[in-house]
Design a protein around this nucleic acid. Structure first.
Lengths: 190, 190, 190, 190
DNA sequence: TATGAATGAGTCTTCATTCAT
DNA sequence: AATGAATGAAGACTCATTCAT
């Protein structure tokens, strides 16, 4: 097996186990079983459990950012672009519930505190939203607020709803999502 | 020392330790040290570590709900009431950052999944918001959406911002908070 | 309460708890509850848990020896005297099953190894049987064997049967006991 | 090392430690030391301390029963057969004093109460004596008593004597054993 | 004197990590 | 290189004993 395949297999197994049981109830031996390899083999790819978890975080973060970036429309009116982003975000999280659970868990744990949370959604550094937000601000389409606040206004509710849905507190459908995204737009638009 | 004092002391120590290090890196012995008591003493108040954590969760939840409930204005125009709630929420979380960190961590861990997350903010059951949201809906002041979604729209951004601030990504001031709360109102109002 | 009463109460409580749960699953706090006194009070009577257990052993041993000694017939034919002793032994153990259980447990534990087991039944030292066995040997009524062996032959089966009955493996009645005692006599008599 | 060797090594170490110190004063760490392995290794073979102890009991019981069964003579006069059994029992217990101590301790502890004590000696189920006792009863060689009582009459004294010897109260030799076994025969024979 | 809350040493058990095969 | 058995440090929990009230 190629080293890279094995690495992927381990990351996938870790995601499956950890997203359900949490970091601390996911022994390396269980992750190894899930990946159908020996426990020691994990250590050929990852220096420690902690580094595996961080690598997984980065993988998911990157996967998410790539998807979002690839799907950023550039030629629509600003409102349409935000609607599209919001719906795509919801789609993505619903398609990849394990990713969502892991990321939330990571970001809310002491593990993740040292990681800049906003690398996921935020503008600083690699944030995919930076450009579109800046553009929208320049167009005066948005309230003149710091980018972090605009992010929170637009994505905060979506994240909450994904979590609620994951926990079974609510069932979302196309229409509710559209209305929610529209409401998020109301929050940020001028 | 009175039993109640001791219980409070332990809960406070647990909050201090866990909000920084997380459940799994907070040995009972460390919590005991922090509370300046012996480890065994904890077990006179709490049956197990898990029950301590749940008790802490319930304490913080109750403390929060009490504070919110006591501060719900009833005689203002609806918009004013929402502004007040939003600002109070931000105040509270800023005054009690450990509470906030613990609650977030709890709700995003497998521990807390069995707990209805929305007992904190949500409308089902004991949610303090239920009444005001229902009233606002009846007045047709809000978008006709499920209460869960209205909650997410109004509090989702606030939660995000508190977290951002806690991580040092942003510094909030009175004015920013007011503008943010106003934006949240834009999200939910008709 | 008189010191002596309290001591008795503690010993009785210890017997009740230990005979069911064993030494190591009988916390001092439970024994104290059973005796309806405070845990610390036990330590006014007994220096430690171990000394409580030893004192209990000695009490039961003494109680048993007294009973046996008081009931040793002296004016019957030798066979009748042994029959009487055997039946009395069975009666006693059936009347005081907790005593029996505790004594057995004690004697078969490392606790009791340092105690001369034969102080209960044996001839050395205080054994109540010594005199009658010596007398019977002198009369040539018994096989010319060491007293320890004669004791084992006569009481070994009875102890086994009490245990069997205690565990529910057998139900004894008057007639079976008589026949068993007679068989024990067959073992020791010349 | 083969898994089986390791298992044997652990059982042997447990026997050595427990037969001297008892269940509750035999920490897993000490058993591990005795077996010259790490503590955690025990848990690869045994799910818990309790299961180790039960496994040890079953091993010793099986070892004993095998030995007895293999040595049951079938072609001698009944009396000779009982003499042989009695002597073999004494031999066995003298050769394996730790086995004897452990079994006694187990059977007299709350641990062992749920185990049918008579599985060791008794007739119900797997008891190796059942057949020979039934045969002897049919031949009218024995007193017409329940098998449990016959077992007690024959083995009760032997068990007592092994214990006495183990405690140093008596020293047995060939001749004393023969005489004792003969006396046991007197107890059961018609 | 009696109480029972407090103490902390001691035990079982888990699991990240290592290393002989 | 891959394996998974072995390791042992770390942590939850118990309970005999102490001591302030």
């Amino acid at each position: 097996m190629h080293t890279n395949d094995r690495r992927e297999k381990i990351l996938q197994a870790a995601l499956e186990v950890i997203s359900i049981h949490g970091f601390h109830d996911s022994p390396m031996s269980v992750i190894a079983s899930q990946a159908q390899i020996a426990m020691g083999t994990i250590y050929r790819c990852f220096h420690s459990k902690e580094s595996l978890i961080h690598a997984l975080y980065e993988t998911l973060e990157h996967r998410f950012q790539s998807a979002m970036t690839k799907n950023l429309p550039t030629d629509l009116p600003m409102q349409e672009r935000f609607f599209h982003i919001g719906r795509f975000f919801m789609d993505y999280c619903q398609q990849a519930p394990m990713d969502f659970r892991f990321l939330e868990q990571f970001q809310n744990s002491p593990f993740g505190v040292t990681y800049r949370r906003d690398r996921l959604l935020g503008p600083s550094g690699s944030g995919f939203l930076h450009d579109i937000l800046m553009e929208a601000l320049k167009e005066k389409a948005l309230k003149p607020l710091p980018i972090e606040i605009l992010c929170a206004l637009f994505f905060g509710p979506l994240i909450c709803l994904i979590r609620d849905q994951d926990l079974g507190f609510i069932v979302l459908n196309e229409s509710l999502i559209d209305q929610t995204v529209a409401a998020c737009w109301d929050a940020v638009r001028k």
